[in-house]
Design a protein around this nucleic acid. Structure first.
Length: 861
DNA sequence: GCAAGGTC
């Protein structure tokens, strides 16, 4: 029997589609990557009985990157990234082993039906799947087509079955437009990011410049925040004047009236109107109008609306909201949370979904009433053809969802109920008055029926004091007429919800990526989230955007994305050639890049105002080996040492504290050593600032401290202080750390293992000799006479920290010991042949590689 | 270490 292989974009869709097509009779098993499942059943295809295998990928199978050597920031000029640097497709998520998984499952299949999402990205994934599986499939024996594409617009029985009976073929042009987008984003984003980062990193000391990223989505996102900041800064408050009129009738409470002219910007003119109004003592009712008005029930919920409300009403950021929504979805509480659609599918079971909520103590009564009186038809929304709107899928209680989970579920459910509820109706009454020459009004709302605002009370019509009953010709007494001076007020910082709206409007990002871009500008220190989820740009963010405006506004304007997308659309429509569009666009951006590089002084001028030059920041810490003057320690990220005399910057390990290490020097280059400490309970090791960036020996890499240094004789090196194989990791060596004496300890030079030992000892030294049993270096320990824990009042003992019984209670090996050769079943000698437990560069077996000695010689000359 | 787009 022949086999049809079918692939969806995500595991959840593979399951739903298989269930529909097999009429619920498929068998399911997990795939080799643990993430995807395979659903199997038999049915008819091309008029024959066949076996069906339905599975999925997890989004893109491949992602684009530069080939390895172009990822070296130090050796590659960013300008080369526009054309010279070759790119390659790598597996998007190596952990998922997606290519292997697809190949195993597709082996020996005869036909493939592609069920990827029906958008351009989905079309592109079609070809990623085909590239992976086609070599594994049976070769077609007849001339029939083997590759089919299913086109569906919703996950409903009719739509899926229709798609199956009208299979088409994948659209190469649409896929190519995505390939072009990927390549453009990669080349442009990385070129600008690397250039900016490297340029500013070496220049300013108080600038957190670990990464100054640029991108066609994140930069306009930042631009929106800075635009608002600029509006606030340039705002000049203006005085204006309004007339306050207070009238009353009989014993009823007074009414405050709104002036029909609203306000005037000239005091004298305002005063003139007041004087005119003051000529009358009475306010005459000119008209009374009553209008029934409605507040429309909401459209069905899509992702961006959910993100907006979560941010503004629940105070939850978009990234966090999506994480919570994802969890609610996988646990079956809500439908798929990434959708642009605001229209329920025709056969959507509104009543069934509603019934699940009938027993809720929060909205159960409203739901029961709706079910018995009949639900209202939802408003007609937009169908983006992706997924149905976000709805609850089953009843839930507060305790099972957790705080934020419940708050989001509560909102989603109330929103759903609101979409099938009646509109909110209210009566608006407006009374128009004349006081001499001037006209005034007073209006009030009274609720007729709450409708959907019963479940969304925050949108309800506020209960106001009813207006007095009156009719045309009635006369009120004027209690007070006066001129009030007020000031226009500046706008506030952009709220996250407003930003989401702006991004959506300008096509910056997608429902799934909007949270990522917002998160990016926060993480890069361009923007901070203030109370009320308002987004305030930092100095860095402001300077960057102002700099782009100064040099080339295209770099920050939201139009940059849409202009490129127009070009890409031509590819997908087959109206333009992939290579030509790519080349043309790259060419434009390459010019922009060179112009940006040449004009960077313009941005630098702005930087100088906000940030201090690197030479003027930091505290003197350790001496430079070249000029022997003090270098300054710059604490701002990335922390580093700067020698202003040599104008050199030396990187340091991050996320820890740096101190001078007893003014000791590296024997190779005379730089003073510094001590890196990862926190109070963490590990520490000395390092030479020069060797850290310029590894002195061939077997060392960048970023190594003295605890990994293979110098044969230096007293701080791995060779002198290494004790034995790490008790937890495979490759590390436990190195003696004397820096915190008398809190003696040894720490692994690869992983985070720290072993404390010989508490209160006077002196601890690593001996030249090694242990007969496990080959670890012996340790010489001296204790104070009065406090020695050694037997028979001894003050000194030499032994192995792993094997010596005298040391057993003095070394905090705990459970970790179990992995050491000494304590494993089979005894100490076991594994010796594989070199376990042996110091890699133990004295007895020190190799003498020529190149290392040559390197040493070169230093000493 | 970099983009943006899928999704887990």
């Amino acid at each position: 029997m022949r086999t049809v292989f079918m692939v969806a974009e995500k595991p959840s869709l593979a399951q739903s589609i298989a269930k529909i097509l097999s009429k619920g009779s498929c068998s399911t098993r997990k795939g080799l990557n643990g993430a995807c499942s395979v659903h199997e059943y038999s049915g008819s295809f091309l008029g024959q009985n066949m076996r069906f295998k339905m599975t999925s990928v997890c989004g893109h199978v491949m992602s684009l990157d530069f080939i390895g050597k172009y990822n070296n920031w130090d050796k590659v000029d960013p300008a080369e990234l526009f054309s010279k640097a070759p790119t390659e497709k790598k597996e998007a998520n190596p952990k998922l082993n997606m290519v292997k998984f697809l190949q195993v499952e597709a082996k020996g299949c005869d036909y493939v039906v592609l069920w990827l999402d029906c958008d351009k990205e989905g079309e592109n994934i079609c070809f990623e799947v085909l590239d992976a599986i086609q070599p594994m499939m049976n070769k077609s024996t007849s001339n029939t087509r083997t590759v089919y594409r299913a086109k569906f617009s919703s996950i409903t029985d009719t739509d899926i079955c229709n798609a199956m009976s009208r299979l088409g073929e994948p659209n190469k042009n649409e896929a190519l437009s995505v390939d072009a987008r990927q390549e453009l984003d990669l080349r442009i984003g990385c070129a600008f990011t690397r250039f900016q980062t490297k340029y500013f990193q070496g220049k300013y000391g108080n600038l957190d410049s670990s990464l100054i990223s640029f991108g066609p989505c994140q930069t306009p996102t930042l631009g929106f925040c800075v635009d608002r900041h600029d509006k606030i800064q340039s705002f000049k408050p203006e005085a204006f004047w309004v007339i306050q009129a207070k009238v009353f009738k009989g014993k009823e409470s007074p009414l405050y009236l709104d002036w029909d002219r609203v306000r005037v910007f000239d005091r004298d003119i305002g005063q003139m109107f007041v004087n005119m109004a003051k000529t009358a003592r009475e306010a005459r009712v000119e008209s009374v109008t009553k209008k029934e008005k409605a507040k429309q029930r909401p459209l069905a919920l899509n992702t961006v609306e959910m993100l907006r409300v979560a941010s503004s009403a629940l105070g939850m950021g978009p990234q966090h909201t999506m994480q919570i929504a994802e969890r609610l979805y996988t646990q079956g509480y809500i439908s798929y949370p990434r959708t642009e659609t605001t229209h329920y599918p025709e056969n959507f079971d509104l009543k069934g979904t509603l019934k699940q909520q009938a027993n809720s103590s929060f909205w159960g009564e409203t739901v029961k009433a709706l079910l018995s009186e009949g639900i209202n038809r939802p408003r007609k929304g937009a169908d983006a053809g992706d997924h149905p709107p976000i709805t609850p899928m089953r009843a839930a209680s507060e305790s099972e969802l957790g705080s934020d989970g419940w708050r989001l579920y509560d909102y989603i459910t109330r929103h759903f109920i609101a979409t099938v509820s009646p509109d909110c109706k209210y009566l608006q009454t407006t009374i128009s008055f004349s006081i001499a020459t001037e006209n005034f009004t007073c209006s009030g709302k009274t609720l007729i029926s709450a409708g959907y605002t019963e479940v969304m009370p925050w949108q309800g019509v506020a209960q106001e004091e009813a207006l007095p009953a009156c009719e045309r010709g009635d006369v009120f007494t004027v209690d007070e007429i006066k001129l009030l001076e007020k000031q226009t007020s500046p706008p506030d910082y952009l709220t996250e919800a407003e930003l989401i709206t702006l991004m959506e409007k300008h096509g910056i990002g997608t429902d799934a990526s909007i949270p990522v871009h917002i998160n990016n500008v926060c993480q890069r220190n361009y923007v901070t989230v203030e109370s009320g989820r308002k987004l305030k740009p930092t100095n860095l963010g402001i300077v960057l955007v102002h700099g782009y405006y100064k040099i080339d506004a295209d770099l920050v304007l939201p139009t940059i994305r849409s202009a490129v997308e127009k070009q890409l659309n031509l590819i997908s429509l087959g109206k333009a050639n992939f290579q030509q569009v790519l080349q043309h666009t790259l060419d434009i951006f390459k010019r922009k890049f060179h112009y940006f590089v040449d004009s960077l002084a313009g941005m630098d001028e702005l930087m100088e105002v906000s940030f201090s030059p690197i030479a003027a920041t930091g505290k003197p810490l350790s001496r430079c080996g070249k000029c022997h003057r003090f270098m300054k320690y710059i604490q701002a990220k990335p922390s580093r040492l700067h020698c202003s005399h040599c104008d050199e910057t030396y990187s340091l390990p991050q996320n820890g504290a740096i101190k001078l290490y007893k003014e000791l020097k590296c024997p190779l280059d005379e730089f003073e050593l510094v001590l890196w400490t990862s926190g109070s309970r963490g590990k520490s090791y000395p390092l030479c600032p020069y060797c850290f960036s310029n590894p002195p020996f061939r077997d060392m890499k960048k970023g190594m401290g003295c605890n990994e240094c293979t110098h044969p004789t230096c007293q701080h090196s791995l060779n002198s202080l290494g004790i034995g194989q790490c008790v937890e990791c495979e490759t590390g060596v436990l190195v003696f750390d004397p820096s915190l004496a008398p809190k003696w300890r040894m720490a692994c030079n690869k992983c985070n293992v720290v072993v404390h030992f010989f508490d209160q000892a006077q002196k601890v030294q690593v001996s030249q000799d090694s242990c007969d049993s496990c080959d670890a270096s012996l340790v010489v320990v001296d204790f104070n006479k009065t406090r020695s824990p050694l037997p028979e009042g001894e003050t000194q003992h030499t032994g192995c920290v792993f094997c010596d019984p005298v040391f057993q209670d003095l070394v905090e090996l705990k459970h970790a010991t179990m992995r050491h050769p000494m304590h494993r079943p089979g005894g100490a000698r076991r594994g010796r042949g594989r070199g376990r437990g042996r110091r890699p560069m133990g004295r007895g077996n020190l190799k003498k590689p020529k190149d290392k000695m040559a390197a040493l010689a070169a230093y000493f000359v």
